[in-house]
Design a binder for these strands. Structure first.
Lengths: 252, 252
DNA sequence: TATTGACTATGACGTTACGTCATAGATTAT
DNA sequence: ATAATCTATGACGTAACGTCATAGTCAATA
């Protein structure tokens, strides 16, 4: 039988935390006539379980559900939770790479312009764009397996994966830049535009014509995106956008 | 000149977010006679900078400092911030491995007992223990370089690092188990106890005699820890604890 | 035994970055 | 002119406690 402070010290948490758990009905120790909380061995076991799931980054609400529902599918919950953690990690890795690039820019010489600050984010913009459409898709077709699949895929790339993705994209851009004197409807141009779409489909999500057209618009309408793309070559954004529209028109 | 909603949509944030930034003085657009907020190109540049640093996981307060202090050492801030991110990532990876182990335990057969739930956490317990001491150390010697160094080290291990650390530890345990019929003060035993201390020093923190003694006590007093250690062999925790005490006694 | 110091309880506000109403005035479209 | 849409401000809600503030309880000391 330990009183709060002792119990808290043994478990390595704060007194306030135990108060909190008590109040929310997560861990309710016996109470003496004086109103004091007394923690016994059983309470400690529960507390350990709480801390366990907390380590796994579950919310206290979820933990309450887990510990208080005897038929809770813990296995499934863990699987689900792992996915979330992997997504978190992927996001973190993106962020770290961005910071790295920022640092590198500094070392490379003069201060970054505001525009340059956004360079590492081209792929993120694509992601944002996808999410917008994904919301619509979700509302239209619900939480289909295909949709889930694509959503899963995008958040599992490693550092090296991203490098590869970027590299492949550069190849496509290089070819298209060399074709900028051609008509947007030129066969060669259209071949590479198709490659662009395949690239997105392969690494991000099934890029439907609708979505592709949306991307084309974004290329010229979103200044952040335009600037980014035009870095490849002046006027490249407009050219690609036109070519993409031709591509989409041919397929509807 | 865009009104809030339009501006919000262009930037991909909510109207409430822009209200919020305005109120906290982070992004204050021009206001019309009707009290409406009007965002111009310059506001968008600022907003982009805000979003950039937000991606980097800075708090809005920090962002305000960065954007409003002309002599802010952005370079240094980025370096510092990267460290924090790497620590975050390391913690995340720990958690993911823990979840993996939990899942594996399920697949390995019967349901986990509460005790077994804590198995993956031996290293974390060591970490907790270190933190306790670290706090004292910090109060005694302040934020010294040596302390910072050791703190940095522990949160930078990769998946593979941990594997190696575990493997090395197992080797030590294996040898000690085979020496369990010897006296705790036996020379061979003491050699491996020293190896144990070196192991901790190498991978975690300079393991002083004081701290090592604390660990010895923990081995037998913290049931979570004891159970974990006794999995190696029944009675192993007590044996190691005794041997560690002998080791420490010899050195004070 | 009275007092002091350590501990306990409850209550309530603070934190972060907004989300989500609620209320009310302004603008725009029909 | 009326309705639909947009805008503003204000205020409460969120997660998991931290941090007082106030007041009662317990154990040791003078």
């Amino acid at each position: 039988m330990y009183k709060v402070k002792e119990a808290a010290e043994l478990a390595g948490v704060s007194v306030r935390t135990l108060h909190h758990y008590d109040r929310m009905g997560l861990l309710t120790p016996k109470k003496g006539g004086n109103g004091y909380r007394y923690y016994d061995d059983n309470d400690f076991i529960i507390l350990q379980q709480i801390l366990f799931f907390k380590e796994l980054d579950f919310s206290l609400q979820k933990i309450k559900e887990i510990l208080q529902s005897p038929d809770f599918d813990e296995q499934h919950a863990l699987q689900q939770h792992k996915k979330i953690l992997l997504e978190k990690k992927a996001r973190l890795e993106k962020v770290i790479r961005s910071v790295d690039q920022s640092i590198a820019s500094y070392k490379g010489g003069e201060t970054m312009t505001p525009k340059e600050r956004f360079e590492p984010f081209d792929m993120q913009k694509i992601e944002e764009h996808r999410k917008k459409f994904a919301k619509e898709v979700e509302q239209r077709w619900g939480d289909t397996d295909a949709y889930k699949e694509s959503a899963k895929r995008t958040s599992a790339y490693s550092k090296d994966d991203w490098k590869k993705i970027h590299a492949e994209n550069e190849v496509i851009d290089k070819h298209l830049v060399q074709l900028m004197d051609q008509e947007p409807g030129d066969e060669e141009v259209q071949k590479w535009i198709d490659a662009k779409r395949q690239h997105i489909t392969k690494y991000f999500y099934p890029c439907s014509i609708e979505i592709f057209r949306g991307l084309a618009d974004m290329y010229v309408n979103d200044p952040r995106f335009t600037n980014n793309i035009d870095k490849v070559k002046q006027g490249y954004a407009a050219f690609v956008s036109k070519a993409m529209h031709v591509y989409c028109d041919q397929r509807t």
